[in-house]
Design a protein around this nucleic acid. Structure first.
Length: 581
DNA sequence: TCTATATCACCC
DNA sequence: AAACGGGTGATATAGA
């Protein structure tokens, strides 16, 4: 007899599934074994590696009558991808649902499977045993028969854990929305499978010469300062330098010297001799690449960590993920021969979301003008109606800071700082924003009030943030924009991957896609259509625009913010090559 | 020598 | 009291 909680799940078959698999940085997972149990009949399936690779489809159904249940399903579905198996049509991920349940407040025992068991009052296997078994899997094969049995047995304990967890969690799961989240885990598996193509020979050369490049950079400039030890900035030597040079320096509240770029910029005005040192610090701070996870096929693949943030965004590792690194490193992104890439992003996504969900007509006008910042200036008469981005750059920059700052709950002091104007001017701009976009403000503040009184705030598809003990009202203010943006991104990833577009990676409000050159334009159109559709679904018919940056082989990705640094590093690399030659 | 903490910088 | 949302992570120093 199936436990009562399962009655809420209208599926003839419910499959609890777990794979064991090995992974190397940047590579695809290598399935080691599979255990699946059908929870109504109790049928148990155990498959070891050799047999797994011989199956051309899973030993369970993947259609609309089979519910696929897993913990962090992108891992299982990544194994499906490697094995060439189809994605299940109905996916319930208990990791995601556990995360949702405790989002914003501390989970009693963390977000792992063991934590979910504990939180739901269930006994769990020891964390130590789990660790040991995971190590045995990661050690790699071949495994002795006793080891195989141990691994399969351990895999089965996770499946049994799922089986015990599901009836309890099912009592409070909002099934249609949980399935939407589960569907995204299949998209995640698809994107992690594809990865971002990079110039592997160049990356390897950079890696090989990395230390020399950094030391070369330091030696060139530090000769005049003698502050560095190797590539390490030594605070006491810096203090000596300041004393020698008779330079006063700003301190932090803690009493320590401020080493921020801001401090260097500020003092650099009175002491121009600091300029090169500032440049060196800046360059060195951007020189990080060693953890980039790139597989043998030149693809950057990382765990996207779906639902990792409170707003439901992905939280991939910044050091492993090419889009988490400093922008200049994106020059390593390069389409394979015969292919092109497109970086497609929503234009002013969060502003569009604010406009649509608040129903503020002036904000909608501003968004639909294509330049919400300058339009705001025009709406209050701070710029003439024929002003353009080029003719009124300064005004536009200021209004951009206001419009973006408002989404984060920025106050007058910080705004004044960021636009380089007196506090009174910043205050006035914020007041004008409130007056111009009254309905937006009413909507945004009502949402915060409601969240405070109900102890929770949700996206339109039910991703919840629990309001903790000391809520930051600015978090709640921003949540409807950021978290609904995340919903939109997830839906677009689902639509695109399900339609066969090669999505390399999501980047919050953007997606990188790859296609053979003869299909590139069509795939870009399809991607933009999927993103437009996702915006309409989330925003009840309101459509957001998109832009696409296209890169065709043999070109590489160029980010204007990183152009100078890219040229610097390539120059250094050229020098190093000459030294050796 | 290892770890914890503060600070800083990067991304959207 | 602070007053810019969500993140990851490297670095430098202090402390165990």
């Amino acid at each position: 007899m199936a436990p009562a909680g399962l009655d809420r799940l209208p599926y003839p078959r419910i499959w609890a599934v777990d794979f064991e698999f090995g992974v190397q940085p940047g590579e695809r997972p290598e399935p080691v074994c599979l255990v699946a149990r059908e929870l109504r009949s109790g049928e148990l399936i155990r498959v070891w590696q050799d047999e797994l690779y011989r199956l051309d489809r899973p030993p369970y159904g993947t259609g609309p009558e089979d519910l696929f249940v897993a913990y962090f399903a992108s891992a299982e579905l990544g194994c499906h991808r490697v094995l060439g198996w189809p994605m299940p049509e109905r996916i319930l991920d208990l990791y995601v649902e556990h995360k949702a349940q405790y989002n914003g407040v501390p989970a009693p025992a963390g977000y792992g499977l063991l934590g979910a068991l504990t939180a739901n009052g269930l006994e769990s296997i020891g964390a130590l045993e789990k660790q040991e078994m995971r190590a045995l899997v990661l050690r790699g094969g071949p495994w002795a028969e006793s080891e195989q049995n141990a691994i399969l047995g351990y895999c089965q304990t996770d499946v049994d854990a799922l089986a015990r967890l599901l009836p309890i969690m099912a009592e409070r799961i909002d099934l249609p929305r949980a399935l939407l989240r589960g569907r995204y885990m299949a998209a995640v598996a698809a994107m992690e499978h594809i990865g971002v193509p990079v110039d592997l020979p160049l990356l390897e050369e950079l890696r090989g010469r990395w230390d020399e490049l950094k030391i070369g950079l330091v030696e060139k400039i530090d000769a005049d300062y003698r502050i560095y030890e190797g590539t390490t900035f030594k605070l006491d030597r810096f203090i000596d330098y300041l004393t020698r040079s008779n330079i006063a320096w700003p301190r932090l509240p803690s009493g320590r010297l401020s080493l921020s770029d801001e401090a260097f910029r500020d003092r650099g005005r009175a002491h121009p001799q600091l300029g090169p040192l500032r440049g060196l610090r800046h360059a060195l701070s951007q020189m990080r690449l060693h953890e980039l996870a790139v597989g043998h096929d030149g693809r950057n693949r990382v765990l996207l960590s779906p639902f990792g943030s409170r707003s439901g965004r992905n939280t991939p590792s910044n050091s492993k993920f090419i889009f988490g690194s400093s922008a200049w490193l994106r020059g390593l992104i390069r389409p394979p021969p015969g292919h092109g890439l497109a970086y497609v992003d929503w234009s002013s996504q969060e502003i569009g979301i604010a406009a649509a969900l608040s129903g503020d007509l002036r904000l909608i006008d501003a968004y639909q003008s294509g330049d919400p910042y300058l339009t705001f200036a025009k709406q209050i008469g701070a710029a003439p109606s024929d002003a353009t981005k080029a003719s009124h750059k300064t005004v536009r920059d200021q209004f951009k800071a206001v419009v973006l700052g408002v989404n984060y709950g920025m106050a007058e002091n910080t705004l004044a700082d960021s636009i380089g104007q007196p506090v009174a001017a910043a205050r006035d701009l914020l007041r004008r924003h409130r007056e111009t976009y009254r309905r937006f403000w009413w909507w945004a503040e009502s949402a915060v009030d409601l969240a405070m009184s109900q102890g929770e705030i949700q996206t339109i598809f039910g991703w919840p943030l629990r309001v903790g003990m000391e809520p930051n009202p600015r978090t709640l203010l921003n949540f409807p924009m950021q978290a609904n943006a995340a919903e939109m991104m997830r839906l677009a990833c689902c639509l695109a991957t399900e339609r066969g577009i090669q999505v390399c990676a999501p980047v919050h409000d953007a997606m990188l896609i790859c296609a053979p050159l003869d299909r590139l334009e069509a795939d870009i159109d399809a991607m933009r259509a999927a993103m437009a559709e996702a915006s309409r679904v989330v925003l009840d018919g309101f459509e957001l625009g998109t832009d696409a940056e296209v890169i065709r082989s043999p070109d590489r990705y160029e980010d204007p913010r990183g152009a100078v640094m890219w040229a610097t590093v390539m120059g250094l690399l050229e020098d190093e090559r000459r030294v050796v030659a």
